[in-house]
Structures are given as C-alpha cells and as structure tokens.
C-alpha cells in the first residue's frame, strides 16, 4: 500500500513566473523511506509543504495515508509529523515546556503530555537539557527536539525537510542514528536532502528532483547502474602514464580518461574484477608498477551529474521558493 501519493503537482510562485513544481509525481510505499534528493530550489520544500497541508498546489492531487490532502487537510494533520528546515520550537521556553505544549495541542491532556514529553526527551538524549531554554541548545539538540515534537502522537507518515542541513558532521551522524532508529519502528518517512550521502544512508528509495520534476527514481544501487557500471581506475608514476592509457583502453575497450593532476587513468568496464585482474597482468608484463588500482562504483554525485548535467551541490540558482519563514 502507498502511504504517500503525489500526482502531477504543479505550483508556481510570483504569479506564474517561477515554476517551483512542474508536474511532479511520486509515491512512498508504507513503512519505507523515500528520499527526495535535489539541489537548492529544485522544489523539495514545496513538495513537503504541499504534502503536509501547509500549502495548496495550483493543480494535481495528493494523498497521505489514504486521505486527500487538498480536500481533507484537517484529517491529514492528525496522522502526520513534520519537522522543517529550521528547528521550529520556542527558543525562550525549555525543551520540556515545548513538548508539553505540543502534547496539549495534540489534545493528549496535561498528564499524558507530561508523560510523553519525558519519554521523548529520554529517547532523544535530552533529559539533562530538558529544563534549559532551547537557546542554550546546540544545533543538533534543537533538531532532535524538533524531531521529538513531530513524533508526539506517533505519526503514520513523517516528513523531514532537510533534517541535517546546517549541522556539523557529529550532529549529522547523531541525527542519522536517530532517524534510523525511527525507521526500524515502522514509520513511513519522506525525507528531503541535498546531501547525496544522506540519501544513500537513510533511504530505501531515492527520487532525484530538479527544477520541479522527478528526473530519476529507484534504489541507490539502481540509480548508480543507470549512470553506467563501474570504472577501472589506475594511478601510476608520470613516466608510465602514456603506456598505461593504452593498456587501460585495451582492457576496457573504451577510450581511457586521464586526470593529469592525480595521474589517474580511468575507463568504464563491464567485466568487474576480471578487468581488474587483466589490467594488473598487462601492467606487470609492461614492467609498470601501479601506485593504486581499483574498481570504482559511481557515487550519487556521478548520478546527479549525469542526470542533470550539473553537480548537485554546486547549483546555486536561487529559485524563489517562498522566502517566508526562512532566514
């Protein structure tokens, strides 16, 4: 069963001048994680805002947990959790205050809200900081608290919009751990990210989006295959570069590429480790000692580059996703 379905979503800003979503469709199987991967301005936040009832699309349909997002937003709000790009908690209040307040807003009642708040603080390792104002928290702690707030009523579908943007590597690792724990608990998760590694780590499936459209989708492995198979890479001393290019090209049957700075010669191969063995043998009989030899599987960066013609994190086109509510 599909927990999230988006069909042909279109959303424009600035009276149609900016097309944030351009016929975007995607779905998420119940109990799985879909990562929506794309650069800034690709339409990730707009997608999440529509699915979480914060925004209406110009056209198209969407369902969350079988409920129509456009016709029944109130019902959708009862089954979703949302954690946005910025930790949406009251800085002045304590972590405990925030969670209790949200619990009460979910109509849990005072006693249940307190219980649930303590439970979540414990689970996200925030018990010690519970009675401190949020403004004393680190970026990672804020995000964890924000995530905790979105889990108060055990949502069926959870939306996380760039959950680790702005966190340092340690904060990111912690957040990944927390999210992986959650997923084990069986929640359906739609997560947006501009970090390829994050999508690779957390998602069952990846939807790559660019300029408001899904341009590729599949498992991380499938996407990597779509870009092409493995590449054979050899690094040698400067004096052997020319000869090595010949050898690699012969083994691969394709033209070999040279990175002069690294003295790295590479070419696509389809025979896997057999190619590796062959090239080592050829190098050996030519009397060339390779400094490094390897088979490299394409990274998601390569995927993005080959799908869009530009690298994921280099694209800095500021599409006017509604600036409201952001710094």
């Amino acid at each position: 069963m599909k927990s999230v379905i988006a069909e042909n979503l279109v959303k424009t800003y600035d009276k149609g001048r900016v097309r944030a979503l351009d016929d975007l469709s995607l779905d998420v199987e119940e109990g799985t994680v879909l990562s929506v991967l794309g650069p800034n301005g690709a339409g990730k936040t707009t997608t999440v805002r529509i699915l979480s009832t914060l925004m209406r699309p110009d056209s198209g349909n969407a369902q969350v947990a079988g409920i129509d997002v456009i016709k029944n937003p109130e019902k959708v709000r009862e089954v979703i959790g949302l954690s946005g790009q910025y930790a949406a908690v009251d800085e002045i209040l304590t972590g405990y205050d925030n969670l209790v307040m949200f619990g009460e807003l979910y109509h849990l009642g005072k006693k249940q809200s307190v219980l649930r708040a303590n439970e979540l603080l414990e689970r996200f390792s925030l018990t010690e900081a519970a009675k401190r104002p949020i403004k004393t928290y680190s970026g990672g702690m804020r995000r964890r608290l924000d995530l905790a707030a979105s889990l108060i009523v055990k949502p069926k579908v959870l939306f996380l919009d760039e959950p680790t943007t702005g966190l340092d590597p340690r904060g990111r690792q912690e957040m990944w751990g927390v999210i992986q724990e959650l997923v084990k608990g069986g929640v359906t998760l739609l997560l947006t990210t501009q970090y390829l590694e994050e999508a690779d780590q957390l998602a069952d499936e990846i939807a790559v989006i660019d300029t408001g459209k899904v341009i590729a989708r599949g498992t991380s492995d499938a996407l990597k295959k779509q870009v092409g198979g493995e590449r054979l890479e050899v690094v040698v001393e400067q004096t052997h570069v020319a000869k090595t290019i010949e050898i690699v090209a012969a083994v691969s049957g394709n033209k070999a590429a040279l990175d002069e700075g690294l003295r790295l010669i590479s070419a696509p191969v389809s025979t896997g480790s057999a190619a590796l063995f062959e090239v080592l043998k050829a190098l050996d009989s030519a009397g060339i000692h390779a400094l490094d030899v390897g088979l490299k599987r394409p990274s998601l960066d390569d995927v993005f580059l080959s799908l869009t013609g530009h690298a994921a994190e280099e694209k800095k086109v500021e599409v006017a996703e509604k600036k409201r509510g952001r710094k």
């Binding site: 979480s52 946005g84 790009q85 930790a87 908690v89 009251d90 807003l105």
Partner: peptide
C-alpha cells in the same frame, strides 16, 4: 522561526 508552519501542521 518556522513556528507558524509547525502550528499549522
């Protein structure tokens, strides 16, 4: 601070 988004969700 994004609080309005949270409340609205």
């Amino acid at each position: 601070k994004g609080l309005i988004d949270r409340f609205r969700s």
